[in-house]
Write a protein that binds this DNA or RNA. Structure first.
Lengths: 202, 202
DNA sequence: CCATGTCCATACGCTAGCGTACGGTTGGCG
DNA sequence: CGCCAACCGTACGCTAGCGTATGGACATGG
């Protein structure tokens, strides 16, 4: 009677992986040593061999998350040359996943935590920076690009929150569904797009 | 030597008020009986006279929050007749407060909690519903109004999150500041408005 | 084949916070 | 005044989770 639960020894990565999983499932509070140990079929003895304390585990999980978020964004980046199409891809991907991005939501929900805050800040600044570049590439001037990037980003944040936390709150059923919404948002974000180079704010 | 801490007896409202305060300050986890008792200069004996358990306290605090959020929105509503101006007011108020809305952020961060979820859902649905009505009043059809309301709402959510959690992440310094941003967002949200597409003030 | 370093289980102590039991105040009313 | 009910303090038990101590298992090279 060998269960699916294998009996091999655990590495620090195994713990970090499980921690990230738990973070997505139950929030930062769920990144707890003893529950995780039980989930992994091990005990605290194993954990405290690999990590100094709980905070180190949280840090490791966040590192994992940060790396993957960044990689994912970069992956989306390299495919398409046209910035407008890149923007469309980003929005489609962001809005597309059914249940949203639980890990990110958990990280954001724990934004007040001292371990979490700097990681989150880095990720967001990278994102906004990328978006600003995108809008500049499209042809907006620096100021207008920053404003549109910020609108795009905040809309992304709010959307993800609604999608994963309160599904069904979105009034999309009578609004043509998600694709129509993405189209609409993109249209608004690109309203009055200049051909290229600079533009003068109204 | 009479301290500022008065010695009068506490009501359930006092506890609920303190709980709401703690919620804003330290999140849902900070709504804890013993710390609050200490903060109020009382003990658990008092608390468990007024409330059955911690969850009842959380419920009371949320009730307080829900009522006030609703009242605040309604208050903003009754002043101005022009829907475009109402929208502008909403955005200006939302973006204006310096440190944001800590209580709301705490509630949203605790969205997975079973006590919190229904309250949050109600508030958000009311908000979105109001926004949809606003955009319809402006002249958009139901579907388009829903989409723009959703964009407005998600942008509001994301903005509040950034403002209170990660101040300084907003790339507004080189984008003309917050008023310019609000103008820009409003312009985009009202792009191609059917009827009286009048907007321009500075 | 056994010794050493790696990895883990068990057992323990400690803390914060929930909830209960119960006795003591306090204040208004008869 | 005196009494009853509302209100509160104190003490207690309980749980979950952190962190430590220590001995044992297990592989692997000498």
């Amino acid at each position: 009677m060998d269960m699916a639960r294998e009996r091999r020894r655990l590495s620090a990565e195994d713990w970090a992986e499980a921690a990230l999983q738990a973070l997505g499932d139950g929030g930062l509070a769920a990144v707890a040593v003893e529950p995780l140990a039980a989930r992994l079929g091990a005990t605290k003895g194993s954990f405290y061999w690999h990590f100094a304390n709980r905070e180190a585990l949280v840090t490791a999980a966040l590192e994992l998350w940060e790396r993957r978020s960044t990689e994912a964004t970069i992956a989306s980046l390299t495919v398409e040359a046209d910035p407008v199409q890149r923007l469309r891809m980003l929005f489609t991907r962001a809005a597309g996943r059914g249940e949203g991005n639980p890990a990110e939501l958990a990280v954001r929900a724990a934004a007040t935590n001292d371990t979490v805050a700097p990681v989150l800040r880095r990720v967001m600044q990278r994102r906004v920076g990328y978006l600003v570049g995108l809008f500049e590439e499209i042809g907006f001037g620096p100021a207008e690009a920053a404003r549109r990037a910020m609108l795009a980003h905040t809309a992304y944040l709010g959307h993800g929150e609604l999608e994963t936390r309160l599904p069904g709150t979105l009034p999309l059923d009578r609004a043509g569904g998600l694709p129509a919404y993405v189209d609409s948002v993109l249209t608004l974000l690109l309203a009055d797009a200049p051909r290229q180079a600079e533009e003068a704010p109204r």
